[in-house]
């Protein structure tokens, strides 16, 4: 479990390391927008990973979307 979290955090850190320099170079108002959306996406992936690790899956909300039509 701890190992899994460490792997996840490492992946996220690597992503930041690769992308941040480019993101910070953006000029003006666009910079804030880009950073916000970037962190939102990353947070999404990160939280999904965490949910996976703690094994919490109440049929998954995105699996739920098609399930509504059932």
């Amino acid at each position: 479990m701890v190992l899994k979290v460490i792997i996840l955090v490492t992946i996220v850190l690597f992503t930041l390391l690769i992308d941040l320099p480019g993101l910070l170079k953006i000029k003006g108002k666009k910079k804030r927008k880009a950073l916000i959306i970037y962190f939102l996406l990353l947070l999404g992936g990160f939280s999904l990973g965490l949910l996976l690790i703690i094994n919490w899956n109440p049929a998954g909300p995105l699996g739920l979307i098609p399930r509504i039509f059932q």
Binding site: T15, I18, I26, A34, Y38, L41, L42, G45, F46, G49
Partner: peptide, 23 residues
């Protein structure tokens, strides 16, 4: 969002897709 370069978002989007696929 009216931004210029899509390449910044490739990695987090990929992580999100992988997380989704597993979860």
């Amino acid at each position: 969002l009216g931004l210029d370069d899509y390449r910044h978002f490739v990695l987090p989007a990929a992580i999100l897709a992988v997380g989704l696929s597993l979860w």
